[in-house]
Amino acid sequence: MPDHTPPDLASLRVEIDRIDDALHDLLMRRADIVAHMAASRVKGGAATFRPGREALILRRLLGRHRGALPRAALFRLWREVIASSLAQQGNFSVAAVQGEQGADSPSARIARAHFGLLTPLKLHATTNRALASVGSGEAAVAVLPAPQDGEKPEAAWWTQMETPRLRIVAALPFLAQPEQSGNGADPGLAAPAAYAVAALVPDATGRDRSLLRIEPEPEQSRARINAALTGVGLAPRWMIRRDAPTPMALVEVEGFLAEEDPRLASLPFPRLQILGAYAEPEPEEDAR
């Protein structure tokens, strides 16, 4: 049959094929560089999973993005590219919580969306089991539901974290939806649905938030904890407080806190630990 494709459409298809080939060449070149980096890291013992570095890559690409391709599509493409790079550099697997929905649990969906469809994903019956799999080295990272005020003790995985070996290193999703209710912890963006926990020290990205686990005195109320933190310049963005079996509070503050930060030593709490830090999420829609 004769080809009735208009000449202009035919030329555009040829141009798309040329661009596809160029993209493919660049992806193969990128994979070669990653393979070289992987060999160097094996010799040097450097970590392969660098969530702070990943956030910087995505922020840079989102910041320069223009045109008809949605930001979500760009993000999805690069998350798969980053996931493939992690796979190249060694055994990398993710633990998540199965929940009542099984393989379609919220944690599993978030883990797949962030770490790629081909990254091995191991589902666990409880958050503590998923957390333990990272502590034992069975998984490189655990994706755990964001803590909630009033949650059951068995769901409060943040109280069981072994610090400083395990740290919160990312908040998910990184590409965030606008806040619908207007009362979320994150002005303008929905609060994180999950956190990634790994056996590594997070990297600062320039726009970060830190999470503190505080063991206050029984008489130190939310208001007193808030006042103490605010007094040293660490005003809480949000706080979760539980009283049993041991009084504990989980607090998020602006910035990337280091262990040697002098403000921490001046706080009037029997015990305080940095649970980790994460790069601030990016909006799904460009505000420009």
Results as ranks from 00 to 15, higher is better:
Met1Val: 08
Asp3Ile: 12
His4Arg: 14
His4Leu: 15
Thr5Asn: 04
Pro6Lys: 02
Pro6Asp: 04
Pro7Phe: 05
Pro7Met: 12
Asp8Leu: 15
Arg13Pro: 02
Val14Ile: 14
Glu15Gln: 15
Ile19Met: 14
Asp25Met: 09
Leu26Ala: 14
Leu26Val: 11
Leu27Met: 12
Arg30Gln: 14
His36Phe: 13
His36Ser: 12
Ser40Glu: 15
Gly44Ala: 14
Ala46Gly: 09
Ala46Val: 10
Thr48Asp: 05
Pro51Ala: 04
Gly52Ile: 01
Gly52Leu: 01
Arg53Asp: 13
Ala55Val: 09
Ala55Glu: 07
Leu56Phe: 02
Leu58Cys: 08
Leu58Glu: 15
Arg59Asp: 06
Arg60Phe: 09
His65Trp: 08
Arg66Val: 11
Gly67Trp: 09
Leu74Gly: 02
Leu74Lys: 02
Phe75Lys: 00
Phe75Leu: 03
Phe75Glu: 02
Leu77Ile: 12
Arg79Gly: 03
Glu80Asp: 15
Ser85Gln: 08
Ser85Asp: 14
Gly90Phe: 15
Asn91Gly: 13
Asn91Trp: 13
Asn91Pro: 08
Ser93Tyr: 03
Ala96Val: 02
Val97Trp: 14
Gly99Asn: 04
Glu100Arg: 09
Gly102Gln: 03
Gly102Trp: 11
Ala103Met: 07
Ala103Leu: 09
Ser105Tyr: 00
Ser105Ile: 04
Ser107Asn: 03
Ser107His: 02
Ala108Gln: 04
Ile110Glu: 07
Arg112Ala: 05
Ala113Gly: 09
His114Ile: 07
Thr119Glu: 07
Thr119Leu: 08
Leu121Arg: 12
Thr126Ile: 06
Thr126Leu: 05
Thr127Val: 07
Arg129Val: 08
Ala130Cys: 07
Ala132Tyr: 04
Ser133Ala: 11
Gly135Lys: 01
Glu138Pro: 01
Ala142Asp: 04
Val143Tyr: 08
Leu144Ile: 07
Pro147Asn: 05
Pro147Val: 05
Pro147Ala: 06
Gly150Glu: 07
Glu151Arg: 04
Lys152Phe: 10
Lys152Asn: 07
Ala156Pro: 02
Gln160Asn: 12
Glu162Tyr: 09
Glu162Ser: 13
Thr163Arg: 05
Arg165Gln: 14
Ile168Asp: 01
Val169Leu: 10
Ala170Cys: 08
Leu175Ser: 06
Pro178Trp: 06
Glu179Lys: 07
Ser181Glu: 15
Gly182Val: 10
Gly184Gln: 08
Pro187Phe: 00
Ala190Tyr: 02
Ala191Gly: 10
Pro192Val: 12
Ala194Tyr: 00
Tyr195Ile: 09
Ala198Leu: 12
Ala198Ser: 15
Ala199Gln: 03
Val201Ser: 08
Pro202Trp: 00
Pro202Asp: 07
Pro202Glu: 08
Asp203Thr: 10
Ser210Met: 06
Ser210Phe: 00
Ile214Gln: 01
Glu215Phe: 13
Gln220Thr: 12
Ala227Gly: 05
Ala227Trp: 13
Thr230Met: 13
Thr230Ala: 15
Pro236Ser: 11
Met239Ser: 03
Ile240Glu: 10
Arg242Tyr: 00
Ala244Ile: 11
Pro245Phe: 12
Pro245Ile: 13
Pro247Phe: 04
Leu250Phe: 09
Glu252Asp: 07
Val253Tyr: 03
Leu257Cys: 05
Asp261Glu: 14
Pro262Gly: 07
Pro262His: 02
Ala265Val: 14
Pro268Leu: 05
Phe269Ile: 00
Leu272Thr: 02
Ile274Asp: 00
Ile274Lys: 01
Ile274Leu: 14
Ala277Gly: 09
Glu280Ala: 14
Glu284Tyr: 01
Asp286Met: 13
Ala287Leu: 15
Arg288His: 14
